[in-house]
Amino acid sequence: MSNPEDYKQAGSIYEFTANNINGEIVSLEKYRGHVCIIVNVASQCGYAKNHYAELVELFDQYSESKGLKILAFPCNQFAGEEPGDSAQICQFVQTKNVKFDVFEKVNVNGNDAHPLWKYLKHKQGGTLGDFIKWNFTKFIVDKNGQPVERHGPNKTPKDLVNNLEKYW
């Protein structure tokens, strides 16, 4: 799915593609049957240290046993806190021991937001509006590719364990 106008018609995240951090097109079909956390990340955000550490911990703990997948989308729309290019982002995530999937930098708000993010916001609107308010907004997607929960940066990844257990 590449037409940004089609996101409202999508039946699941599996209809979307995104470029991974190396620029390769990835069909989100590869996540079929897995519970996923989709998160917008920023290396220079104040939340980065704690959230990256906890995302790594969740992935290490649940990727094998429960099939958890984490999809991280760098975004520079909030206070310019992800200014780097793909190579710099790769270097940063390596220092954090990230083994989950990292994608190319995207916009999560506005007309040029990535279609996946338009879909996520359409399915799980925010409290004050559908827009993403800050870095490290997390969407839980069930095994059928349906966005079932949305959590802001004030809810840490480890705080999501009880929520995730409902979908395993």
Rank of each mutant, 00 (worst) to 15 (best):
N50K: 08
S63K: 13
G23H: 05
I70M: 08
V41T: 15
G11I: 01
F103L: 02
N144A: 05
D60N: 15
V39C: 09
I89M: 06
E81P: 04
Y31T: 08
H34W: 11
L128S: 01
S63Q: 15
A113Q: 02
N109V: 05
N162D: 12
L28P: 07
V108T: 11
C45N: 05
G23E: 09
N109L: 10
G46N: 06
P83Q: 08
D130V: 13
N76W: 02
D60H: 12
I140C: 06
A10Y: 12
V102N: 03
W168T: 05
K143T: 15
V93F: 07
D85R: 02
L120H: 10
E149K: 14
N111I: 00
Q61F: 05
H34V: 09
I38D: 01
S65D: 07
F92T: 02
K118M: 10
G129H: 00
F139S: 11
T137G: 09
Q94K: 14
N135H: 14
N40K: 06
N50M: 10
E64D: 13
K96W: 02
D85H: 02
Y7M: 02
W168Y: 13
G125H: 00
F59M: 06
K49Y: 13
Q88H: 10
A79P: 00
P157V: 03
K123Y: 07
L128A: 03
S63N: 15
N144H: 14
N135M: 12
Y119R: 11
L120M: 13
V35F: 09
K30Y: 05
Q146H: 09
H151I: 08
G110I: 12
F131E: 15
K30P: 02
F92L: 05
T156G: 04
D60L: 07
V98Q: 10
I140T: 01
E24W: 03
E64I: 08
F92H: 04
D6H: 07
E29I: 00
M1K: 10
P115M: 03
D112P: 07
V41E: 11
D130S: 15
I21F: 00
W168F: 06
N20S: 07
Q9V: 07
E104K: 15
E64L: 12
F131M: 14
F131W: 14
L71H: 08
E149V: 00
G80P: 12
K121T: 05
A72G: 15
L160E: 06
L116W: 01
W134P: 04
F136I: 10
